[in-house]
Write a protein that binds this DNA or RNA. Sequence first.
DNA 1: AGGCTTACCTAGAGGTCCTAGGCAAATTAT
DNA 2: ATAATTTGCCTAGGACCTCTAGGTAAGCCT
Lengths: 189, 189
Amino acid sequence: MARAGLTADRLTQAAAELADEVGFENVTVSALARHFGVKDASLYSHIRNAHDLRVRLAVRSLAELADLVAEALAGRSGKDALVAFAHAYRRYAHEHPGRYAATQMALDPDTAATSAAGRHAEMTRAILRGYDLWEPDQTDAVRLLHSTFHGYVSLERAGAFHSHPRGVEASWTRALDALDSLLRAWPAV
Amino acid sequence: MARAGLTADRLTQAAAELADEVGFENVTVSALARHFGVKDASLYSHIRNAHDLRVRLAVRSLAELADLVAEALAGRSGKDALVAFAHAYRRYAHEHPGRYAATQMALDPDTAATSAAGRHAEMTRAILRGYDLWEPDQTDAVRLLHSTFHGYVSLERAGAFHSHPRGVEASWTRALDALDSLLRAWPAV
DNA sequence: AGGCTTACCTAGAGGTCCTAGGCAAATTAT
DNA sequence: ATAATTTGCCTAGGACCTCTAGGTAAGCCT
């Protein structure tokens, strides 16, 4: 009986593709086993349980997104960097909805600390070097930017903006204009 | 054999409490049936299926949140209204995490149209009457505000801000200052 | 070739979702 | 007050998912 050659990595990769096809919440051990033509029980040599599989997918997706953002940021600064970051972020969410959903999973503190979540914060902070912001305003601004990007993308995906004819793309561009101007004139306390 | 007196409404109410206790994703038909001391199958006379139950919970939570926000907004305008809206919104998410998660469910267009989602947009728009914003900037600003509120609250709940010592409360207050100043000086195209 | 590790298997328990069909309690009609 | 109707909750059972225990065989190493 030939072996399928499973590893935790190949499972996570397949789970990522599956998530984009059927949605993150439908990534099950059974579906993954079917994909490889093996029995459910066989996967438990490689992953601890279903939650472990989803955590691996989340960690992998965070790293993948961080790579794409890093690439988009390379050689840019100021508004140029802000827009590049935002587009890379939103594009990932659109092209890989299942993986993006995975990045929103609540990770336990240890896992989060060793994940690429820190790189995301670091890159957001790098953008702010093009603006005149210092602690603690810098941290506040990082949180605001992250919130806005994530909020916009997830509301957009949830269909919250469909009720109005104004183009979602146009609002996004204007939101970036607004954030840029906000960062340039960050209000003093 | 005495009846439990189930109705779709009582089920939804219990589901809301259950959601806040065990998390939205753990609101199951079985758990709800256990809560009422009846068999799973009995619930299907009142709800169509598990998805239907979650949709009812989402619609109910949206309405509940809209009521709280409306109350907070009453008699306020300008930054005062902005801050009141934001605090009511964030407070609901903190006090009722399961219900708040429910409000983020993707609803089909018909359900969304008849839900309180429209009231949320309308109230956000009302805030902007205190600023000098007109279409299409108004819609862009509504989307930006909504995104930021939702993004901040959901990242906060996911633990994304725990890695830094800066207080989450302080950043939130500053974010509102920033949004206020942004709305007062909304950049022209 | 023999031995070791491990990839994958079968079997099965327990949980959730949901349907079909039945009885009995509550409600309405007579 | 009794009969007819509606409906709330039941049992039974199928389909799918999660996960454990224990076994067989494939592939690597000497």
